[in-house]
Design a protein around this nucleic acid. Structure first.
Lengths: 237, 237
DNA sequence: CGCCCGCAAAACATCGAGAATTTCCTAAAG
DNA sequence: CTTTAGGAAATTCTCGATGTTTTGCGGGCG
């Protein structure tokens, strides 16, 4: 009955095992772009950086390779998955496929609690979007919470899991392109369109709005990369 | 220049590293149903069975857990993912989503070589389907070759990868339900419908035929399980 | 009679060292 | 000057052993 006053298991943010810890750290660093695409992941190096033994590190890297964040070149170690235009487009395309299907399901099956959570998440996000100064971390969290709330009603665990992975793969591209000045864009309006359609239980419209939203995100990211290529190595190394 | 006469790397079927080997063995045994759903996977046990050290085994299990064939209950080891009606339906649903999208792409982009390969694969499969006595292994290979050929034109590596995993997850259910007498069913006709539509480049019709085919496969599998539940433990040991 | 505590055995997760392989550098041959 | 061969250094992969956590069992207390 958890009379101890300590938080119940499951809500705890602290990973239980070294492997889980390593997995979370590596995944986070790859998505955040701190580990750059194509980088060789030498176990000895990582061992020093994270202060974790080789065995848990290798296990974490194995999981990440199945997730598509790392490639394992048998007998030649691991490296961060490279980025490419094609890859971003591929991820985007599949993400739209998965996300719209999950959203359709969520809209059809979401109950009152789903609605309430969605309203709350949208409210918080809107408030942050209206602010002048943008705390990226905070806003990213709110953005994720909003998208999670949208899909919370989805009855398919598989769709949820796939979406989560694809979302993070996409997020990596966004983070890598982040430092450059973003193309002006009315994100709030895109969010509002999805939100309105979802609350009205108009799945068709919500999916279309989602498609537009995800495509725009990709296009902005692609633009940043293209511009970065024209201006060679200004921020490199 | 490989003057040794040995086959060049890449064509070799033999896994290069112990981890890869363990991964292939475990995956195969799980899909074939030799490792039953819910079974605890004790490393010491596996070590004896496969004659592979604990470290490569754990790495393989980690990868399998990311693939969804194994669950990792932190600090309490690994076990084969359990089966359930809900899970089979979930897998089927997502598989249809992925497979029809991949097929649509394949039909739109497949070139002459794609067509030729498809014709050949269909021809071989038809011949086996017409036979009286059925070698399951052989037929399964032909079936897989046919489905692979259908999707070979798909331009999205991600869709291909996801489909491969989902196909094998589905296959596990089929294999587990295998011993029981199958419901009579004209599989050949279903295959023919997909094949004809694909060659005519009618994506819409091919996708619909695929949907029907996959749904039927699931329903037959579900029927077998339901019947097995009514007749308790006749073949169980 | 049932519940709970605590000890022993099993299993898991992790570490450090040792075999196998790749990579890198040097130097000679064409 | 490019190419090829050889060997040393670095790195990956694997094993056996060790600390920690979970599990299973038995005895005592309510």
């Amino acid at each position: 009955m958890n009379l101890s006053g300590r938080p119940v298991a499951g809500s705890a943010p602290k990973p239980r095992t070294r492997t889980d810890h390593a997995y979370a750290l590596l995944r986070g660093d790859i998505i955040a772009g701190r580990l750059k695409p194509g980088t060789k992941l030498r176990v000895e190096q990582l061992r020093a950086d994270y202060d974790i033994g080789a065995t848990p590190l290798r296990e974490a890297l194995s999981r990440l390779s199945a997730d598509g964040f790392v490639i394992s070149e048998g007998q030649r170690g691991f490296r961060v998955v490279p980025i490419s235009y094609d890859d971003l487009q591929d991820i985007t395309r599949v993400r739209i496929l998965i996300e719209t299907e999950a959203l359709r399901d969520s809209i059809e099956n979401g109950d009152d609690a789903w609605e309430a959570r969605l309203v709350a998440a949208y409210y918080r996000l809107s408030k942050l979007e209206a602010q002048e100064e943008q705390d990226y971390e905070q806003r990213e969290r709110a953005n994720e919470a909003f998208h999670d709330a949208l899909l919370a009603g989805c009855t398919s665990p598989l769709l949820r899991r796939l979406h989560h992975t694809l979302y993070d793969q996409h997020k990596r591209y966004r983070n890598i392109s982040l430092m450059n000045p973003a193309v002006p864009r009315d994100v709030h309006e895109e969010h509002r369109a999805i939100y309105d359609a979802a609350l009205e239980r108009d799945a068709q419209r919500a999916c279309e709005a989602t498609r537009v939203h995800v495509m725009r995100t990709m296009e902005v990211t692609l633009d940043v990369f293209r511009k970065a290529e024209e201006t060679p190595t200004s921020t490199a190394d």
